[in-house]
């Protein structure tokens, strides 16, 4: 089951079929969501129009977390089953997740200023997001620091798993720290008590953000797979010019190893 989707060529074919639809869903739900969030939804009785920031803040925070879940899941798959696709997915997810985590911090700060009267409060949620942002930065920095693509992907996968184990621990410790130092969090967010006139735009924005994430993730995976293909083709081209002996080493030999592994499982 996993293998069918893990085949890169099959993935590209599937992605090409889905991407036009995802594009339409993304565009449509963003249009409707933004219209409702900015125009038809009512201002909050306490927070006034500043509550409209929630419609972009909450989905951004969710995408930041979700991006790390995808990153960790794909890293796990890439370490255990050595799927080239999982590897590309992990790398592709990082910049999207990091961007949304950064946006969640920024919009949280913009929302916080009128509510708290200050740009930044060491609220448990914001602090956890900040640490998550650092985890993303470390992951991407490690990717760019190691030149060999195969080694970089494995090292980054190890880091992603270590980070994934730590995320709940960090979340727990930050909540603990927060209750020690400032008992009540002021930010009011979501919850079942929210008016349905606010729930609808929020839900549609969530759809928009998720569809957007899926779409950009697929684009980035396609780009990564194409980049690898170019690398292999260039290598083979160079090897052919040097003669058949040189061809046995490098990417070709590595792919041989990969083929053996895929047959074995």
């Amino acid at each position: 089951m996993m293998h069918r989707f893990a085949n890169p060529t099959r993935f590209v074919r599937l992605a090409d079929r889905m991407l036009p639809w995802l594009f339409i869903v993304t565009l449509g739900s963003f249009a409707v969501g933004l219209y409702m969030a900015l125009i038809t939804s009512p201002p909050d009785y306490q927070q006034g129009d500043s509550v409209r920031i929630m419609y972009v803040h909450a989905p951004s925070a969710w995408m930041g977390l979700f991006g790390y879940m995808v990153l960790a899941g794909a890293s796990f798959a890439s370490l255990v089953w050595r799927h080239p696709l999982a590897d590309a997915a992990a790398k592709a997810s990082a910049p999207i997740g990091a961007a949304f985590t950064g946006l969640a911090l920024l919009t949280g700060s913009l929302w916080g200023q009128p509510m708290w009267g200050t740009w930044w409060v060491w609220d448990a949620r914001l602090t956890s997001m900040l640490v998550l942002f650092f985890l993303y930065l470390g992951y991407m920095a490690l990717w760019s620091a190691i030149e060999d693509r195969q080694k970089a992907s494995k090292a980054a996968a190890i880091l992603a798993l270590v980070g994934a184990i730590n995320v709940p621990i960090i979340k727990f410790s930050v909540d603990w720290w927060n209750t020690l130092h400032q008992p009540a969090s002021i930010m009011r967010q979501g919850g079942p008590s929210m008016d349905s006139a606010m729930l609808w735009p929020l839900g549609i924005m969530f759809v928009a953000f998720n569809a957007y994430y899926a779409m950009v993730l697929m684009w980035r995976i396609k780009a990564e797979l194409a980049a690898r293909k170019i690398e292999t083709l260039r290598y083979n081209q160079a090897a052919r010019q040097e003669g058949p002996a040189a061809r046995q080493e490098g990417p070709a030999a590595r792919q041989e190893g990969q083929a053996v592994l895929e047959e074995g499982s």
Partner: peptide, 9 residues
């Protein structure tokens, strides 16, 4: 506050 948030996102 609202517009910078939307413009940034």
């Amino acid at each position: 506050f609202v517009w910078p948030a939307y413009v940034a996102v």
